[in-house]
């Protein structure tokens, strides 16, 4: 079944937005100066990147099969629940290992 061009454009928009966010997250991971700043990039940008892909996939399969396909939402939901947890555990591990901080960082991590 050929897709409506408007729906196709919408799917393409979400796909491009999602992969751009994932790319920005990876760039952040690559070039930010210390661990704690690097922690910001993947936990958010990448999660949103997958979110964009998943929305595109939802729209695509709903339009193609003519019936609502929402199960991809589970992936986003799961990621949104787990991403903060893994970021938190990693931050605690990093604080315990006393990683080097960027020079302009104000404030101090707590002693574990």
């Amino acid at each position: 079944m050929p897709l409506n061009p408007w729906i196709e454009a919408l799917v393409a928009l979400f796909l491009v937005a999602g992969s751009l966010f994932a790319l920005i997250g990876a760039i952040g991971l690559y070039r930010l100066p210390d661990f704690f700043t690097r922690l910001h990039a993947p936990t958010k940008a990448t999660t949103l990147g997958v979110g964009g892909m998943v929305i595109a996939s939802m729209i695509y399969f709903s339009a193609r099969n003519g019936s609502l396909s929402l199960h991809e939402l589970l992936i986003t939901l799961f990621l949104f629940i787990t991403a903060p947890v893994s970021a938190h555990v990693l931050a605690k591990a990093a604080m315990q290992q006393k990683l080097r901080l960027h020079d302009s960082t104000r404030g101090k991590p707590w002693q574990q």
């Binding site: 920005i24 958010k44 960027h102 960082t105 404030g107």
Partner: peptide, 17 residues
């Protein structure tokens, strides 16, 4: 955050609050 990541890292002011 995307703008912060793509701008020069010298201008970042990270902090523990």
């Amino acid at each position: 955050v995307a703008r912060l990541i793509l701008s020069p890292t010298r201008r970042l002011h990270p902090a523990f609050v």
